[in-house]
Design a protein around this nucleic acid. Structure first.
Lengths: 339, 339
DNA sequence: GTGAAAGCGCTAACAT
DNA sequence: ATGTTAGCGCTTTCAC
């Protein structure tokens, strides 16, 4: 492993110039810059990140704390963040907190504080005031994705609006008996997503003069299996059967489609189904859904951090752009049979 | 941020002793060790990883290079690796190579070489000789998961054996016309997984005196949708219809089940279906499959690295234990209708 | 078992 | 625009 000194010697300049030429901070004449780059390439020189970090205080590394790796939403956010960071020349250090909970303390007390990261992205994690404080005390920018954290810049989708949109779509098609499959209370921990989506559903109904019927709500766990069972329940009673079901996630909506099939019902003729996410599988199932572009959320989180880490003169501050969402109408929804 | 000096002062010892006490290298009397730990806790002291790395040459960080994040197998391996590393006090730096390919070069030339990691885990990536060499030249242990890399310790499942097992299960039930949905050639890049699974399938057939019928092979892309279309093809011709289908992955097997349903066929009465993976969704679909425990593969990769990074006296070297796999019989397979 | 001190390989003042 | 040099905060010889 060649060091900066050898590069300096080969290029015929000082180590300071090498450092400047390679990092882009400070002015270097085009001539020496070329010589340095050439020498570095020749020697296969790459800076030692630890030496650089120690001397500069910057690590060019961002920590991402995330509760799940094998769920579509989370892996998509992670993928987006990774791509954006790589482009900026940053590393991504992953902290998956799916574990017991003592892992969580460990991560905060030992890992994030070792000066290994310049900033932290917290995905769908409600950080405690204490945790936020520790991070802030270190001067580490922190941005949340997936829900509001008090005192933290957070990218958060308008869950009420998303649910309204899906429900209004169903109402617009002529449905009046619209059921909802939402999250159980345990899932309300992180940012009340289930509550907000149920709220949006109810608002849309009321705006259309329909009183939400508690019998048309079924809780589930955001999985296909959970949606399947909830839907069977909802669809099982013939004379009360809803003509449409809005599920709070695509996975539950897919479960609903499968349940309908098993009951001999045809989607959308006998029952319309709508979800939220635009999951990988949704197109295959022809599921009408509301996209929420999680990859973009990961990328945007990185943009925000970068603006704090390396303020660029020109840039208009990304501002608190509301996250986009979009109705995607496929073949799982149609007018109800009657009319 | 308190430094080691303050800890030393508060504990009434030298910085050298603090370092030794906290890192566990070198002998320290129990008394001073306690004092140091106490002082460190009091001050909320955590070592600066960059300073520590620079001085010691160890980063306590492992790089994981992985081609996909949003596929079950890969995210599971990643999860296993993350857990195991966290337990050992190591960080995990993620390099997702899903991108174009110039990303790949970037990662190898700039990221992995900046002395940021002590070791590298390569998941399902066929590294070039040159890439392997660069890594070795740095003295960085490297272990592969998912397929053999020349000159590299690799955890690799016996794909031929896995496919044989699934196929033999179907043969044992009495099936003779067994179709196979495998990968297309593009998927053969990484370790010939599709080829090996097809090989195992054919071996099992031949061992049972059945000549593989090329008409009973259909290529797909390892997705549910791909499996669905391939299966429709296979099941569409009534008089040639296989009584069982072995798919090279659970996702394709699930697609097969859905295709069968859409054709009015009942699984397993009209057609048995078996897959490989034991995917999250497989239980829900009652899919008979061969589990391959990817989480364990990630963990095992870490074990191997640790043995190289921190050789423990007692440990029996983990040796080249073949990766376990296991037939999981559910409700998608049964004896063929005739008998 | 413990302390003193010499680096680890860079970066950032400060000069020039 | 470039060179000189003093650290960055630890770990690790080497002595004791």
């Amino acid at each position: 492993m060649a060091g900066i000194e050898e590069v300096a010697r080969l290029a015929g300049v000082s180590t300071a110039t090498v450092s400047r030429a390679l990092s882009g901070r400070g002015h270097v004449s085009p001539a020496s810059k070329a010589k340095v780059e050439d020498a570095a390439a020749r020697l296969g020189y790459v800076v030692s990140s630890s030496a650089s970090s120690l001397a500069s205080g910057r690590t060019r590394n961002v920590g991402v704390v995330i509760p799940f790796l094998n769920r579509w939403f989370f892996s998509s956010v992670l993928e987006g963040a990774q791509r954006a960071l790589l482009r900026k020349g940053y590393d991504l250090t992953l902290y998956n907190l799916s574990g017991e909970g003592d892992e969580r303390a460990k991560v905060f007390e030992h890992f994030l504080l070792r000066q290994r990261v310049d900033a932290v992205i917290a995905v769908s994690l409600e950080l405690t005031a204490h945790e936020v404080e520790r991070l802030h005390a270190l001067g580490k920018p922190l941005v949340g994705v997936g829900g509001p954290i008090p005192g933290v810049r957070t990218l958060s989708i308008d869950d009420v609006g998303v649910a309204r949109l899906a429900t209004e779509h169903l109402i617009g098609l002529g449905h009046r008996r619209i059921a909802h499959i939402g999250g159980t209370h345990e899932f309300d921990l992180d940012f009340h997503l289930p509550t907000n989506r149920r709220l949006g559903y109810e608002q849309a109904l009321r705006d259309a003069g329909i009183e939400p019927d508690p019998a048309l709500f079924a809780p589930a766990d955001f999985t296909i299996r959970g949606g399947y069972h909830a839907a069977k329940q909802l669809l099982g009673v013939p004379h009360l059967r809803p003509t449409a079901i809005f599920a709070a996630s695509d996975e539950m909506a897919i479960g609903t489609i499968l349940a309908a099939r098993d009951l001999g019902l045809v989607v959308p003729r006998d029952v319309s189904v709508a979800g939220v996410d635009d999951h990988d599988l949704s197109e295959f199932f022809g599921l009408t859904t509301v996209s929420q572009f999680p990859r973009g959320q990961g990328e945007q989180a990185v943009e925000i951090l970068m603006e704090e880490l390396e303020p660029s003169s020109d840039a208009t501050p990304p501002a608190a752009v509301p996250l986009p969402y979009e109705l995607r109408v496929r073949s799982s929804t149609s007018r109800p049979a009657d009319g």
